[in-house]
Simulated assay, not measured.
Amino acid sequence: MKAAVVRAFREPLVIEDRPDPAPGPGQVLIAVEASGLCHTDIHAAHGGYAEKMLAWADFARPVPDGVDPRDAAPLTCAGVTTYKALKVGGVRPAQLVAISGVGGLGHLAVQYAKIAGATVAAIDVTDEKLALARSLGADILVNAATEDPAEVLRAHGGAHIGLALAVNEAAFGALNAGLRRGGRLVMVAMPAGGTIKVPIFETVLGGTAVLGSIVGTRQDLDEVFRLHAAGRTRVIRETRPLESVNDSIAQVLAGDVRARIVFTF
């Protein structure tokens, strides 16, 4: 099988021919049709992709009819991750949900928040990403390059839920500062620095909460697939061959990708 292999950390990935992996007890061999490029992949070793992979049979989920494999790739990562994060935040109709970072995760988060009946504030640093958020239903657009997101959110009464998807520590702080009394900051992205400052007085007096959320359950994924098969969500993606993996990683790190890159095999 063809694979993009990590020979050394932070070195370019190498395309190699590798033997097909052999499943052990309780495992299944999966032929990969499409695989999305996620920031977590880059954190792991600047990549790990192949035409086939092993999975535990108890946790493997079939892609249902009506869902394109090239859409399923982002849905099983960005989709289920943001869907679960909104559940963690306890989103309810008519609440204000602030989504910081409109990209591979954020463009799906906007749609799930709208499905839940929320008012959505989309925060990013480029007009192109904000225009994408608007086309997907965002109600309030905040350009963090020219506006203070916390001030804008407070002008709207403050966010009930802040979804931190931008890989930037300062964005986490701005989102936290824009919460209303009792608001919840849900941390999803993992900036390289790995630390944010949480003001004690404002957190205590405002009764706000800081929560973490990672990926989702098999039930969450089933719901994500059902919503997509029903035409409730759109996946904004660009398909590329596996050989483009190193250039694609560089573009993701530079923030030059509109939403999601999907490698096809």
Score class of each variant (00 low, 15 high):
122 A>M: 02
169 E>H: 05
201 F>V: 15
135 S>R: 13
223 E>C: 04
152 V>P: 06
207 G>D: 04
146 T>C: 02
154 R>S: 08
158 G>L: 00
206 G>L: 09
203 T>I: 03
199 P>A: 00
173 G>D: 08
116 A>N: 01
185 L>Y: 05
160 H>D: 15
175 L>N: 08
227 L>D: 14
134 R>G: 00
211 L>I: 03
224 V>F: 06
194 G>M: 05
176 N>P: 00
209 A>W: 05
174 A>E: 12
188 V>T: 02
218 R>K: 14
225 F>S: 13
164 A>W: 03
149 P>R: 04
161 I>G: 08
182 G>Q: 06
159 A>L: 01
141 L>W: 09
228 H>E: 12
196 I>C: 09
110 V>S: 04
216 G>I: 09
106 G>V: 03
178 G>A: 07
158 G>D: 02
178 G>W: 09
193 G>Q: 02
206 G>A: 04
214 I>W: 07
107 H>C: 04
141 L>M: 10
110 V>T: 07
167 V>G: 11
159 A>M: 02
129 K>A: 14
144 A>E: 07
208 T>Q: 12
148 D>A: 12
187 M>A: 15
228 H>D: 11
193 G>Y: 01
133 A>N: 10
198 V>E: 05
117 G>W: 03
234 R>G: 02
142 V>E: 05
136 L>I: 02
222 D>I: 05
218 R>Q: 14
127 D>M: 03
181 R>M: 09
182 G>I: 07
158 G>K: 06
214 I>H: 13
213 S>V: 12
237 R>H: 14
159 A>S: 10
201 F>G: 10
221 L>A: 12
109 A>T: 06
157 G>P: 12
173 G>V: 07
133 A>P: 13
154 R>N: 09
197 K>Y: 09
192 A>T: 14
231 G>M: 09
210 V>C: 03
212 G>K: 02
124 D>A: 15
143 N>E: 08
182 G>R: 07
114 K>N: 07
125 V>T: 14
136 L>D: 04
215 V>M: 15
223 E>A: 15
169 E>R: 13
197 K>Q: 15
129 K>T: 03
133 A>F: 10
195 T>H: 05
176 N>A: 14
240 R>D: 10
105 L>H: 07
147 E>V: 06
109 A>Y: 03
